[in-house]
Design a protein around this nucleic acid. Structure first.
Lengths: 332, 332
DNA sequence: GTGAAAGCGCTAACAC
DNA sequence: GTGTTAGCGCTTTCAC
């Protein structure tokens, strides 16, 4: 592997001059430049980024922590974040924590060790303190860490309300509500709102808890099967895309018709809700906008010029599908 | 940010000794170690990985290039690869190329610049030469680059045959076959086999080409809509998961029944084929095994001890679903 | 305009 | 056992 010294030697100049050519700063005489460029291409020289990074003490890489890439929401988030960062001259290092706090910690260490310039985290198995005590730049997706760490999230309160409204207008009487558990995760705000709304209208809500950081497919099926087994008379479901679809699948298998016998409203509204037939009624998060906002916030944090907004809440949208009857929600 | 020198100073020792404690090699007296550990924790010192990497000339990071994380196959592949690499002490840097050869190139440069120790690529927009001329370690998923670069792929020939067999046994007479285009990508081997098999049995095959590196959802819908519009009398479909599901969705919307009027066989068999109702008959690739094999091959390449197998072909499996009638395929 | 030299933070070889 | 020192490959300051 040729180094800058080899290039300098071959071109018969000093390393400083080569560096100047490489970085396009300082004055370099035209024919010196030519000679150096010659040497560079002859030796097929590429600068060693590690050395540069050491000098600059930055890598241009942002760590993106997600609980599981196999979860459509997070793979989409990872994708969009990568794109947004790339467009700002940064690279993304996407990290799966798959529900393991060790892994999450391990990736968090990369911040301390200067391997990444910042971390955008959508992964929340660790104790809040672990994040708070880092000196590095952190942006959180959907989890509140307090004033020290900027957060970007969806308006889950409205999300829960909208879902409730749809369910109510569809005249469901007994609704299955599959919820996740993860402390401090803003997405869970929808649950309380949804239930309060329904209960206040005398609708029966059956709750089912799922481990939030366990995104393996089997656990969705298990939860759905358990729900089918345990309670009958369910005429509506509200859950995240995947558990809701599992339940719907099993219900249809058991001969129930959607939407006649069963209404389904999912949360997230990822692509699968459109591929299925009928298209699923969903409360959609704006994944791209979330990703762009996280990225932009990170850039601000790094550049330290503009002030960084503390909490940024983005609105959600309804996707009307065939798993509920069409309702008019005040033009939303 | 405290450096090793600060630690040495505070502990009243030399940097060499601190380094020895940090790396656990060489002899260090017990109380010297204590003092140093004390200083480390007091200063909240973490070694700068960049400096270490520069010295060792490696980062422990493997680049994983995928065309699009928003494609279920590739997000699953990325996930499993990350896990497999992590288990071998490496970190993955997952890179979306989203069909842009500039991006692919940009990530490839990271190899030259020593930012990654190797690259596993499932992304193939660049000219073969771009890969061949790199000096770094490369493992290819599903694209043949010749003897220089080890490849891991599925047995797409069998895959195509199996799909054809299912379609034949389901007595389809006019089959829509949506194909992708990408030179050298082994996955496309299934197409020729599938068509040959069907044609030789007098089944009509309608071909539709799609841009392979364009994985945006809309293009699937467009292709499906076009197929619906252009040809009637289709009683079978064979395509990758997503285009097939789009077609099926639109066909059902138009009142066609699955599997009575239309049989559907998809390729890949990702999670969405199980969430949909009915479950979709698919030829499944073993994503995890593909990922593990790629990772293992990369590790061998890096460690340079064992010989590296050149082409590794993994077998595919049938997932019997409700979009075809059950058929017996010699116990497969 | 250009070369020499210092230093980014670390590791390892070599004295003592 | 431990300190000192010479790099790893680069950038940048400062003479010339």
């Amino acid at each position: 592997m040729a180094s800058i010294r080899d290039v300098a030697q071959r071109a018969g100049v000093g390393v400083g001059t080569v560096s100047r050519v490489l970085n396009g700063n300082g004055y370099v005489a035209e024919d010196t430049r030519k000679k150096i460029e010659m040497a560079i291409s002859e030796l097929e020289y590429t600068p060693n980024e590690l050395a540069r990074n050491l000098f600059r003490n930055k890598t241009g890489i942002i760590g993106v922590l997600v609980p599981d890439l196999d979860h459509p929401f997070f793979s989409a988030f990872a994708r969009e974040t990568e794109i947004a960062l790339y467009n700002n001259g940064y690279k993304a290092m996407i990290c799966n924590t798959i529900g393991s706090s060790n892994r999450e910690m391990d990736y968090l260490y990369m911040l301390d060790r200067n391997m990444v310039d910042g971390i955008i985290t959508g992964s929340h198995t660790l104790h809040v303190d672990e994040y708070l005590k880092r000196k590095g730049k952190i942006v959180s997706l959907d989890q509140e860490f307090g004033p020290e760490i900027p957060m970007v999230g969806s308006d889950h309160i409205s999300g829960g309300k909208l879902a409730a409204e749809i369910i109510l207008k569809n005249k469901c009487r007994k609704v299955l509500h599959i919820t996740g558990v993860a402390p401090n995760v803003a997405a869970n705000n929808r649950h309380a709102v949804f239930e309060a709304e329904l209960s206040s209208h005398g609708v029966d809500v059956v709750d089912m808890m799922m481990e939030w950081n366990m995104f393996d497919h089997q656990s969705y099926w298990d939860a759905a099967a358990e729900a089918i087994r345990k309670c009958d008379g369910i005429d509506g479901v509200f859950a995240a895309d995947q558990p809701a679809l599992c339940y719907m699948h099993l219900a249809m298998e058991a001969g129930r018709r959607v939407p006649e016998d069963l209404k389904v409203v999912t949360y997230d509204g990822m692509d699968i809700t459109r591929l299925c037939y009928p298209r699923v009624t969903s409360i959609c998060q704006d994944v791209r906008f979330l990703a762009e906002t996280c990225s932009k916030t990170m850039i601000k944090l790094i550049e330290g010029k503009e002030p960084v907004p503390q909490n940024q809440i983005l609105s959600v949208k309804i996707q009307q599908g065939g798993t509920t009857y069409p309702v008019d929600l005040d033009g939303k």
